[in-house]
Computed example of a mutant assay.
Amino acid sequence: MVRIVGFFAGLAFVSALLVAFVMPREKVEETAAQYVHEHREEKKISFSFDNPVWGKYDRQQLQRGFQVYKEVCSACHSLKHVAFRDLEEIGFTKPEVKAIAKQWSTEVPSINEQTGEPATRKAIPSDYFPSPFANDTAARVANNNALPPDLSDIAKAREGGPHYTHDLLTSYQEQPADLVKKFPDIKTPETLHYNPAFANLNIAMPPPLAADDQVAYADGTKATIDQMATDVSAFLMWTAEPKLENRHRTGIAVVIFLLIATALAYGSYQNIWRDKKH
């Protein structure tokens, strides 16, 4: 009796699978984001560190990128995993780093030694970059309830890394009329901004790079929107992976070592078995 019940239960299960296989699927509703991302050509840009073997950072570009972060991005975005003294790795001298820390617009939380009460002080090179807001609540209040992400590791946290960052910064535009016509319910709200590089097309962050010459580069480079986006994207790649060049050098050394070891092992094999009969 149990076998008969089991047989019919199995038959019913197999029948249900066959019905599900042959029945026509419901068409998945196309979304505006899906439509835009499928029909949009992503912007391509080349960075000096893209090569997985020989890639290295352009120190001058990193310093320009830091200037863009300092003058544009730092008003909303923190860099909590980077210390001021780390800037020496991209070419700033110790006196320059000390001056950058001392002149930073946001002071560092501290304790008054005399009263024991919370206080603030000027930053020193060993301090990490302070957040522009006291806490997440203050950040949301200042940004229409949106929480600006920390940028320390953003280049590694987003698919595409610095290429995505550059694409996002340079893709702000008016929402196309034909897109609204095709998808009437997706008109960008007044509190958001249309950006086809963003996952759902509407982003809370206003265009941070709104015009050319928004910063004045010390080395005389023309500060176009594309140039500023490229430089700050490279800088944020460095903050996320400051040891990239060391990793590349180590990889090259390991490959050379393995090649030499392989040649020596093969030579030893030939020498040991040279007079042996197979």
Results as ranks from 00 to 15, higher is better:
244 L>N: 02
112 N>H: 15
230 T>L: 14
64 R>N: 09
93 T>I: 06
198 F>P: 03
260 I>C: 09
226 D>H: 11
232 V>M: 04
268 S>N: 04
179 L>K: 07
47 F>Y: 15
89 E>W: 03
263 A>C: 11
247 R>Q: 07
256 I>Y: 12
117 E>I: 02
147 L>R: 14
159 E>T: 04
116 G>A: 03
178 D>M: 11
137 T>Q: 12
188 T>R: 09
229 A>F: 09
228 M>K: 03
158 R>C: 03
167 D>K: 06
237 M>A: 02
11 L>G: 09
148 P>Y: 00
160 G>D: 03
12 A>H: 10
121 R>C: 01
208 P>Q: 02
38 E>G: 08
272 I>M: 08
68 V>S: 07
105 S>Y: 11
176 P>V: 00
131 S>H: 06
162 P>M: 03
162 P>W: 06
7 F>M: 09
230 T>N: 10
217 Y>F: 15
49 F>L: 02
76 C>M: 10
19 V>M: 11
262 T>M: 12
234 A>C: 08
222 K>A: 06
96 E>K: 12
32 A>F: 08
232 V>R: 14
81 H>A: 10
39 H>N: 11
75 A>H: 15
270 Q>H: 03
197 A>W: 13
235 F>V: 00
156 K>Y: 04
172 Y>G: 01
72 V>E: 10
83 A>D: 11
256 I>W: 11
118 P>Q: 04
71 E>I: 00
81 H>C: 00
193 H>Y: 14
186 I>N: 10
29 E>T: 06
263 A>Q: 12
171 S>I: 00
135 N>G: 01
188 T>M: 08
82 V>Y: 06
159 E>D: 09
172 Y>M: 03
106 T>Q: 12
43 K>C: 00
112 N>Q: 05
268 S>Y: 15
270 Q>P: 00
223 A>W: 14
20 A>D: 03
43 K>V: 01
161 G>H: 06
3 R>E: 10
79 L>D: 02
147 L>P: 15
245 E>T: 11
143 N>K: 12
197 A>E: 06
72 V>L: 13
42 E>M: 09
228 M>W: 08
167 D>R: 10
253 A>Y: 09
229 A>H: 12
63 Q>D: 04
153 D>V: 01
165 T>F: 07
206 P>G: 00
248 H>Y: 07
163 H>D: 00
188 T>P: 15
224 T>V: 08
122 K>I: 02
179 L>D: 04
253 A>R: 14
175 Q>N: 03
14 V>G: 01
91 G>V: 02
112 N>T: 04
43 K>L: 06
46 S>F: 14
115 T>P: 09
136 D>C: 04
28 V>A: 10
116 G>V: 04
253 A>G: 05
211 A>N: 13
135 N>V: 01
63 Q>T: 00
130 P>D: 03
213 D>W: 13
161 G>K: 13
247 R>G: 00
156 K>Q: 12
29 E>D: 01
202 N>Y: 12
25 R>M: 01
273 W>G: 01
232 V>T: 04
268 S>L: 14
